[in-house]
Amino acid sequence: MALRKLAATLLAAGTLTAGSLIGASSASAAPAGAQLDCPYYFVCGQAANGSWFRYKTCDFEFQLPNLIGSGPLINNQTPGTVARFYDKNHKLLFTSKAYQSRTVNWTPVWYVIAC
């Protein structure tokens, strides 16, 4: 996850292009321009760098892939289910109550509890 912080710093400073991290990340990347697919019972997100996630297991904290930049968040779980998103120090940043679709700045987000 140190790569994420370094990349965010370099992107902010204008010394690194967004595309130069694609090969360095161990996270899966969705095809360029693809819509985020988020089946029922899942909470999903995708960042500007193409990294994405899709989780439905409850009561477990997932470490998110190398998410840099803004992108969609879709909480397509059963109505009323709440996903919680945390920073690198496990401080709660925000929640998402199902059903919700919005844009999020993923760079400071490191963990999620899907429900």
Results as ranks from 00 to 15, higher is better:
residue 83 A to M: 03
residue 78 T to V: 06
residue 36 L to A: 00
residue 34 A to T: 15
residue 48 A to N: 09
residue 86 Y to A: 06
residue 51 S to T: 12
residue 66 N to Y: 14
residue 86 Y to V: 02
residue 44 C to A: 02
residue 82 V to A: 08
residue 77 Q to H: 05
residue 38 C to R: 01
residue 36 L to Y: 03
residue 72 P to E: 14
residue 76 N to H: 13
residue 78 T to K: 07
residue 79 P to Q: 08
residue 86 Y to G: 05
residue 91 K to Q: 09
residue 76 N to D: 12
residue 90 H to R: 14
residue 70 S to D: 13
residue 90 H to I: 01
residue 45 G to I: 00
residue 47 A to P: 10
residue 34 A to P: 14
residue 73 L to K: 02
residue 47 A to E: 00
residue 76 N to C: 06
residue 52 W to E: 15
residue 79 P to F: 05
residue 86 Y to K: 08
residue 40 Y to D: 05
residue 90 H to M: 02
residue 67 L to Q: 11
residue 72 P to G: 07
residue 67 L to W: 07
residue 41 Y to Q: 11
residue 38 C to H: 00
residue 54 R to Q: 15
residue 82 V to G: 08
residue 88 K to R: 15
residue 35 Q to N: 09
residue 70 S to I: 05
residue 56 K to C: 06
residue 85 F to S: 04
residue 41 Y to R: 11
residue 53 F to E: 03
residue 77 Q to Y: 04
residue 88 K to H: 13
residue 76 N to R: 04
residue 70 S to A: 15
residue 50 G to L: 06
residue 64 L to Y: 10
residue 82 V to P: 06
residue 88 K to N: 13
residue 94 F to S: 06
residue 49 N to S: 14
residue 85 F to N: 03
residue 53 F to N: 04
residue 66 N to T: 12
residue 50 G to V: 03
residue 47 A to C: 01
